[in-house]
Design a protein around this nucleic acid. Structure first.
Lengths: 339, 339
DNA sequence: TGGTGTTACGAAAACGGTTTCGTGTTAATA
DNA sequence: TATTAACACGAAACCGTTTTCGTAACACCA
């Protein structure tokens, strides 16, 4: 087993001091040509690479970013993660991921773990439970310690920090407006049961668009489903019993499932009933019919989050100004709506 | 900004030595009841948490696992990752993810980066480019340094280390056999162009099943597509020109796309033509018709990989025995085949 | 010859912990 | 009373770096 070589080894071997080796490797002016060449040659020969941990301890900078997300088998989060990783990697940072599993406790534990020196800053999307409990002390503690934090998608107003979101309300508004312009009158909203910031925003946009276009708000056209629903009974009944000519779903899975119900009922998509989903993921693209969907530009979101974080991490002064970046979403029109 | 408190602070405040504080916090026998209580109370009050980096440096153990995968926006890898994260988390380990983006160079750079002290071991799936180049020096270097390595899914025989795979060949064999038992005679294989270990194995199983069942091997029924293909021309033509009654696809995207071609051609699934895909992901489940697919049990795979790695990391002796775990895959039958 | 300035290097502190070993104080024992 | 053991703690080394500061050796100049 080849042992990793350290400054100490080089120093001993070349009969110079550790400081000399360290300086020689950094091409310091202090060291003579001869010595530098000797040291550098030796280091290259034995493939010396400084120990990251030691450097982290010394510099009090780890070059690690902590990412905490509710789930990883989830297209949108994965997309954001890719953006984060991409930006981080190209700027010399590594990414440590923790999955909160929508659990408040796991979120807290993971944060505390990472906050003890493992990372230089956090990027996170709140777990459903955290949003429900409305308890953000763990975030507060971290920011009070001066650890930069960037929130994305699932955010809260209670914490002052940088944030990146998409214009959920606006996106829903536009989507519903489009449906109305296509002549749709009875537009359903399929949303989540549990309290999620984003779902609420989308619902707001839905209601506002109806109102602004002079359509009555009919609460019976709003269906709330469990976030991870497997049981199709509830949505099945909904489709059987209602007369609907368009549907806005807050995610693509809801949309795909509901399209099935519609097809089973004998409805033609998009002629009899139109569908628009959120999260323009793999399902929207490959569904049959292909689903018109609100693209959230997750990768861009991740890049922006990473950029915001790294800027804060690397800025010397404690900049107490935070910004919230609002990304424009895009409606990707496909076969489930009339063009 | 609340500064993080260290042993030194506590020692100064309580007018004892750093060693005493350290021992008191670990409930050492050496320290008197009084002192221990005093120190522990103080530590709790100021919410003292040891610095991970310092501990890592001292122990030469980071409690971090490095995971290098070709892509993260990819259902199977994500699933494996979830298994890894889950097991790691429950055993006190954090996970650092790097994405190789199917690039050899990125894989090498990321590995070297992490190998300098950041992690205790690696779990990885090789990039396509690495498999093509057949260059595994970076893996060799790492293992020679005594850093444990577990390979999953995209593996190589050139490196001695723990491995986890599914029985790709067997799975393909079973799938094709099933199609044959359903009376299918002209079974196509849609696979990848680039060299991927797994695709080759699946092709082997396909051929062997045909042979064992007395069906002629017709190379014109094998279609090779670029890994990330967007252009549907090639597969479109293939379906137009061939008489086929069943298709085995090495991933679900290929399957979904090809089902579209078949439907467009006026074929009925599964009556006229059956489809089986690999990677039982979200697409298989929600496709229309739902796709019969080989479940690779990614999460289980990740758990096993993590378990193997952590065992190696924590075992004192340099155990030079490696094992290859072969997971059984499962054929999930849905609407795209006849039951 | 004494003073000054370079040059080239080493000692040591620091980052924040853990751990070994030495030692002063007290109490028990011969 | 002298010896010994137990107790409770501190000093210091160590992990692998970086960086500040001190200084030996030499050259140069007046």
């Amino acid at each position: 087993m080849k042992q990793k070589i350290t400054l100490k080894h080089i120093a001993r071997e070349l009969e110079v001091s550790i400081s000399t080796v360290s300086k020689a490797l950094k091409n310091s002016e202090e060291i003579s040509r001869d010595t530098k060449e000797k040291v550098q040659a030796f280091a290259k020969l034995y493939n010396y690479k400084p120990n990251n941990i030691a450097i982290s301890l010394k510099n009090k900078r780890t070059k690690n970013i902590g990412v905490i997300i509710p789930d990883i088998v989830h297209h949108f989060f994965t997309t954001v993660f890719r953006g984060i990783e991409k930006y981080a990697d190209s700027h010399g940072y590594n990414v440590i991921v923790c999955v909160s599993d929508e659990s408040f406790d796991k979120e807290v534990i993971n944060m505390e773990m990472l906050a003890n020196g493992s990372i230089d800053g956090f990027i996170m999307a709140l777990s459903a439970e955290t949003q429900l409990k409305n308890d953000f002390n763990h975030l507060k503690e971290v920011t009070e310690q001066g650890i930069p934090l960037v929130l994305f998608d699932r955010i809260t107003d209670e914490i002052e920090c940088d944030k990146v979101v998409i214009d959920d309300k606006e996106a829903a508004y536009q989507a519903v407006t489009k449906l109305i312009n296509n002549g749709r009158k009875r537009i359903a909203l399929i949303t989540t049961e549990s309290y999620l910031n984003v779902s609420e925003k989308r619902a707001e946009g839905y209601f506002e668009a109806l109102k602004d276009n002079g359509l009555a708000i009919d609460e019976s056209l709003v269906l709330r489903l469990p976030y991870q629903y497997e049981d199709e009974q509830k949505s099945g009944k909904f489709f059987e019993s209602k007369e609907i000519d368009a549907v806005l779903c807050v995610n693509e899975i809801f949309a795909i499932r509901c399209m099935r119900h519609a097809i089973k009922k004998g409805l033609k998509i998009p002629e009899d009933i139109s569908f628009i989903g959120f999260t323009d993921g793999i399902l929207s693209k490959f569904a049959n019919p292909r689903l018109t969907s609100v693209a959230q530009h997750g990768e861009r979101m991740g890049e922006i989050a990473a950029q915001m974080l790294i800027e804060k991490v690397e800025s010397e002064e404690e900049n107490e100004t935070y910004r919230t970046e609002i990304l424009k979403s895009t409606l990707i029109e496909r076969e489930s709506t009339i063009n």
